[in-house]
């Protein structure tokens, strides 16, 4: 699966396009991680717990997008963008979308 955020796949030809595919996930903060984060908020610096949490969320959103593209029979997703929304206090949505293509 080729994933790019430019609007084509370099050196490959587009055969067919299947329209928009997307994946999203809503993640909430973990109370244990939140406790450590509140200590971290005293002295500043990187909050590793949140970095990991957001990395997991990003990977899951991308995985869901790939599953949807595979359902269409696509082998590439181009022009991938991210969007986020904060739905509730301490929870956030990561939404990723792009155009599914068949290339060769």
């Amino acid at each position: 699966m080729f994933i790019t955020n430019i609007d084509y796949v370099p050196s490959l030809k587009i055969i067919e396009h299947y329209g928009l595919v997307s994946g999203s996930t809503v993640r909430a903060k973990h109370i244990g991680k939140d406790f450590l984060a509140s200590l971290k908020n005293l002295v500043g610096g990187e909050i590793k717990g949140y970095t990991e949490l957001l990395e997991e969320a990003r990977d899951e959103a991308i995985d869901r997008m790939i599953l949807q593209a595979e359902d269409f029979g696509a082998n590439a997703i181009v022009n991938v963008r991210f969007s986020t929304a904060s739905v509730a206090q301490g929870a956030a949505e990561i939404y990723v979308y792009g155009t599914a293509l068949k290339v060769s």
Binding site: F2, I3, S11, N41, G44, E46, T51, L54, E55, I62
Partner: peptide
Amino acid sequence: QIENCFFVSGLVVIGEDYFKR
């Protein structure tokens, strides 16, 4: 001459300290 392409990302969360707050 491009041979291959793939998606990469880097993520970081940095908190402010009490004084900055």
